[in-house]
């Protein structure tokens, strides 16, 4: 049965999908992709990597090294870790993550509609705005009539992949007091 709520939900989902479709126009505001450390990227596009380079420091905050060069290297490694992790996921999950990036990339649209729907920042150089965007998605109502659970799920996906990529990296282990796997012999 198509309820009023479902109708709302479906129109919102198609709005997001529309955004995704339109995002093939690349935005001048997408940050440049950081150096990939020689990794051959299978999933992440330069635009995805640019966005991740701005999201990562906000997601991990003090968890990242404070020294500039170390921090920059950590971010590059996290992005490589993301690519490796996503490339190993089932094709359907990869398609969902592709859709997520399409929404993130879609900030070129000047209309208010997408920002009301997704709250993606206009520009990726303002830490405070990125944090607000993340919190909007984090605390979005999973039962929302407009966006359904998509924003909350999108938030969890972005954050978990970033956390996994960093805290599996030995460079993070000093910070979280982990001595690494035991040495056996």
């Amino acid at each position: 049965m198509l309820t009023r709520r479902k109708l709302f939900k479906q129109s919102a989902v198609s709005a997001i999908t529309m955004l995704a479709l339109e995002s093939c126009y690349s935005s001048p505001e997408i940050p440049p992709a950081p150096d990939g450390l020689g990794h051959n990227f299978e999933f992440l596009t330069p635009a995805d990597r640019g966005i991740l380079s701005k999201l990562t420091p906000v997601i991990l905050a003090e968890g990242l090294p404070t020294i500039t060069e170390q921090k920059a290297l950590a971010i590059r490694e996290i992005i490589v870790g993301w690519d490796i992790a996503v490339s190993g996921l089932p094709p359907l999950t990869q398609a969902e993550i592709r859709k997520l990036f399409s929404v993130l990339d879609s900030n070129f649209i000047l209309s208010l509609t997408p920002r009301l729907l997704t709250g993606v920042p206009d520009a990726w150089d303002n830490t405070k705005e990125i944090d607000e965007f993340l919190n909007n998605w984090r605390f979005s109502d999973p039962q929302s009539l407009v966006t359904g659970n998509e924003l909350r799920v999108g938030y969890m996906g972005m954050v978990e992949l970033t956390m996994a990529s960093w805290y599996a990296n030995p460079r993070s282990w000093d910070f979280c007091g982990y001595a690494g796997p035991p040495v056996l012999w």
């Binding site: 997601i59 003090e62 968890g63 993340l134 956390m163 805290y167 979280c176 982990y178």
Partner: peptide, 18 residues
């Protein structure tokens, strides 16, 4: 182990890092 833990917690930023 840290990866399992970091991904099981909710949230991001300062509080997660703390």
């Amino acid at each position: 182990q840290p990866m399992l833990m970091a991904t099981a917690l909710d949230g991001h930023g300062k509080i997660h890092a703390e």
